[in-house]
Simulated assay, not measured.
Amino acid sequence: MRTPLEGKAAVITGAGQGIGRAIALRLAADGADIAILDLNIENAKRVAAEVEALGRRAYATVSDVSDRDSLHAAVEGAEKELGGFDIMINNAGIAQVLPLLEVRPSDFERITQINIGGVLWGTQAAAASFINRGVKGKIINASSIAGHTGQPVFGVYSATKFAVRGLTQAAAQEYARYGITVNAYCPGTVGTGMWEEIDRILAERDGVPIGASFRNQAGGIALGRPETPEDVAGFAAYLAGPDSDYMTGQAPLIDGGMLFI
């Protein structure tokens, strides 16, 4: 039986762990070859080995998404190694737990360069490649529930995820005439290393036990359990596959029922 992404290839940033790794493995299971871009080459190589164990080709390389030249070079390398690609997933990002009064220029610059810059540079690199090769590709960006509703002590993080939605909408309109679609996914409280770090910071800030903040967040999920990276990967696979061909410029929630908007 033909798999949904057979004959396709995907480039995924931040794919060495967490949600990015889960997306890489899901798309590989669906038939795609995968380029794993990550700051940590050892993590990237481990995921590449997992992809290859699923019978797909894999390419692992270092990339700093905040650096336009680095990301463009990594995407060009992936195109060469995989013989082209059809799907670009701008997944890499960081969190920031700071009240607005405590945000300093260095804090602002780092998170915006990664969370916004990484999406912009990745979108540029993918669109240029798709247009040059005449490929009706798919660009998929990582936003968040915080990109739909601003959250206290996550103010600048929320702003970056709102920005991802804006870039997604603008790119969808700019590239529609080439047959390129651009969408985003908006996860909620996902059990990853990123949330472990958030939980640690909140525990120290609020004087609560480790794990309490995560449990409090997860307690508000209608489906009654925390989100897993695989939950997000399933939706990313839909956006990457043919069933979403008539969808563009959208940023749906995939949060188990946290926000209802």
Rank of each mutant, 00 (worst) to 15 (best):
L54N: 07
Q250K: 00
G134A: 11
Q151R: 00
P229F: 10
F154R: 05
L37N: 10
W121D: 02
A58W: 08
E81D: 06
D38H: 09
G224F: 10
A240F: 00
A203I: 08
Y157N: 03
A176T: 14
Q124G: 08
A176V: 14
S66E: 11
L82V: 10
L82D: 04
G7Q: 12
E42A: 15
A222M: 07
G257R: 03
S158K: 05
Y175G: 08
V11L: 09
R205W: 11
G241F: 08
A29D: 09
H148C: 06
L82A: 06
G7W: 10
L54E: 03
I221D: 06
G14V: 12
G117S: 09
T149D: 06
T112F: 09
S129C: 15
V182R: 01
V62S: 03
I201N: 03
V164N: 00
T112G: 06
T3G: 01
W121F: 15
I36V: 15
G7M: 09
F154Y: 15
V190G: 01
I139W: 04
V119S: 07
E109N: 10
Y238L: 13
L100V: 15
R68T: 09
I210K: 02
A49K: 14
R200K: 13
A251N: 09
I111A: 05
I198A: 00
W121H: 15
A184C: 08
L223Q: 13
P242T: 06
L202P: 03
A24C: 04
R68K: 10
L39A: 12
F214A: 10
I261H: 00
A53S: 15
M1D: 10
I254T: 04
E50T: 14
I114C: 06
P152D: 13
D245T: 15
N90P: 12
L167N: 09
